[in-house]
Design a protein around this nucleic acid. Structure first.
Lengths: 151, 151
DNA sequence: AGTGAAATGGACAAATA
DNA sequence: TATTTGTCCATTTCACT
């Protein structure tokens, strides 16, 4: 994992549709070396896969929400049933067990407040063992980088 | 945007490295139809691009943090200089202006607590106009879906 | 279904360390 | 010496028309 590998990862994170020839020019290596490096980055597990990046605005998903949730009980059973329920809802994009005041942080996307209300009634309020819930809405996104720093 | 388009988007979000022939079989359409649909989804702006998905664990980024930040002043100048500073730091993966108690929600990745401490000192504490900061760490990720529901 | 571009994989010499 | 790289090469897969 040298500087060239890192810049390959950076380039592939921002645009994976480039040909190897283009990529090779960007990172300053030959096409064959570049190809070899990509294959080893894949098999070494640094690259987990490739995906299309959709535009949430264009899909009409104008509302982003963060929901902090505290459970009534931190018993194993309560957490397991909560987590299982969370995984079943497609509108819940992310869920992390966290330190701090809340127990879980969730990230949601919805079309508008009306649909969020429906999600709230049909998903969030059905989650078992919830004692407190605090929602924040994203008014504006300053920065959204789906990737990770490579070093 | 019919059911087939939606399932194309779903399939491309989970794995964009499939060939059009594979994709066509998954969504139940001919390869040529599938190809035409992808092209129009791209030019209509639903597909913003393609990217490699890296494994943060494999990169050694074992620490995910959420930081809620309140500014001393909500004046335009204070917010602009805060936001500009945020965009300059690669360790800050996401930043949203939000409703609720806090003003901003940030998402960070770091190798470990030690590096997070360095990020804290070298990035977060340098952000201008901050009055309060509350960090939560992800102990465990229950669910992480980078994509969006397609309808 | 056909065309052309690009990915894939191999062999070998040069370079690097 | 051993590992990596760059320049050919052949084959084949696949996007695109």
């Amino acid at each position: 994992m040298d500087a060239i590998d890192q810049s390959i990862l950076r380039a592939l994170q921002s645009d994976s549709s480039r040909s190897i020839a283009e990529l090779a020019e960007i990172v300053g290596a030959s096409t064959s070396s570049c190809h070899r490096r990509i294959k080893s980055l894949e098999s070494a597990g640094f690259i987990a896969g490739y995906s299309a990046v959709l535009d949430p605005q264009r899909l009409g998903l104008k509302l982003h929400a963060f929901v902090e949730i505290t459970l009534e009980s931190q018993s194993r059973g309560a957490m397991e049933s909560f987590e299982k329920a969370v995984c079943g809802f497609d509108d819940i994009l992310e869920c992390h067990l966290t330190t701090g005041q809340a127990d879980y942080i969730l990230r949601l996307a919805a079309h508008d407040l009306e649909q969020f209300d429906r999600v709230h009634r049909e998903c969030l309020s059905l989650l078992p063992g919830v004692s407190a819930m605090r929602s924040s809405f994203a008014i504006r996104t300053i920065k959204q980088w789906r990737g990770y720093p490579t070093g």
